[in-house]
């Protein structure tokens, strides 16, 4: 893939939210949200449905006005950027195309607004694999083709910052793989990639960094690795033919455990220690290994906690 930045010497700007707040009537949709998105990485913007992700992205793109606070691109509001179309590209709703307009003309509209021509339209069509469908009306497109057209639109200005709202939503496995590797490649070129999702599973293979929100509030902001380290509870699964003997040995060593399936789930020690206890007691093991809480579980627990906290506070 050759979508190199026009000028690789200048690093693309990051995205910065500061106490970003949006009220609709008496409802707070985004609540004093602060986070930073760095260039050269794929940042997953994660939250359950209705968490305020789309509203945040719309404020980033200048479509919705914050009630308080700000969200900026390289420190500037999008309307103050000298060349917005070449600085930031966005995919908000892949279906937001006129059904009677051809894909080529749809792209040409935005290319011309950015001071670009037909050549660039052909390039991005090629980039997303829609060259043959360019003259077809967008109304005939499948969801996957819509997503590709949306990505092509976002890439027209060769922007350093890409904002993608639920880009994996509704894609088939092949489409997901394509979108994922595209995002990874774009980030590897140094661009700032911010994509939202309500599914933790979509983050695991795609994101470098995570910004997790729930009910408009920040729940976590870290690298994916750090997030896993901090939030997933570790445990050791162990089993033995003489399970009762193993349980007694762990009890004597004052190691916490519980019975789980055909073995024991140990939370108070690592594999080395459990192995040592078993060896000292001469107990043969038939299974010993680390297990981790799934990220999906962590996500549900974290967003659930915030919900609980809020209802207690209310």
């Amino acid at each position: 893939m050759s979508v190199l930045l026009a000028d690789p010497t200048t690093s693309p700007p990051g995205v910065h939210a500061r106490a970003l707040t949006k009220w609709y009537g008496n409802t707070v949709v985004v609540d004093r949200l602060s986070f930073t998105v760095r260039p050269g990485a794929v940042t997953g913007f994660l939250g359950p449905n209705g968490a305020g992700k789309s509203t945040t992205l719309r404020m980033l793109l200048g479509l919705t006005r914050p009630t308080q606070g700000a969200i900026t691109i390289g420190g500037q509001h999008i309307a103050d950027l000298p060349d917005p179309a070449r600085t930031v590209g966005a995919l908000l709703d892949a279906r937001a195309v006129h059904p009677h307009r051809s894909a080529f003309d749809h792209l040409l509209v935005f290319a011309q607004a950015a001071g670009l021509g037909r050549r660039r339209v052909e390039q991005v069509l090629d980039l997303v694999g829609l060259t043959d469908a360019g003259r077809r009306r967008a109304g005939e497109f499948s969801l996957g083709m819509h997503q590709r057209l949306g990505i092509a639109t976002a890439l027209l200005g060769d922007p350093g910052v890409l904002v993608l709202d639920e880009p994996l939503n509704g894609l088939d496995p092949e489409g997901i793989r394509w979108m994922r590797s595209l995002m990874r490649n774009l980030a590897a070129e140094g661009r700032t990639i911010l994509f939202s999702s309500h599914l933790m599973s979509e983050m695991e293979l795609t994101a470098d960094d995570l910004v997790v929100i729930d009910r408009g509030r920040l729940v976590a902001e870290s690298s994916l690795a750090e997030f896993v380290q901090t939030h997933t509870a570790q445990a050791v699964m162990v089993s033995a033919p003489d399970l009762d003997g193993l349980a007694r040995a762990l009890g004597r060593a004052r190691i916490a455990f519980e019975s789980a399936g055909h073995g024991l789930r140990v939370t108070g020690a690592d594999t080395t220690e459990v192995g040592r206890v078993a060896a000292a007691e001469g107990i043969a093991l038939d299974e010993l290994g680390r297990v981790r809480e799934s990220l999906e579980d962590v996500f549900l627990r974290l967003t659930h906690d915030v919900t609980d906290h809020e209802s207690r506070a209310a």
Binding site: G62, V88, H98, F110, A113
Partner: peptide, 18 residues
Amino acid sequence: TAEYGTGMIGTSLTTTPS
């Protein structure tokens, strides 16, 4: 209205924030 009906207005205003 065609831009509002299709939602394309979002892309238009992202490309041209003014």
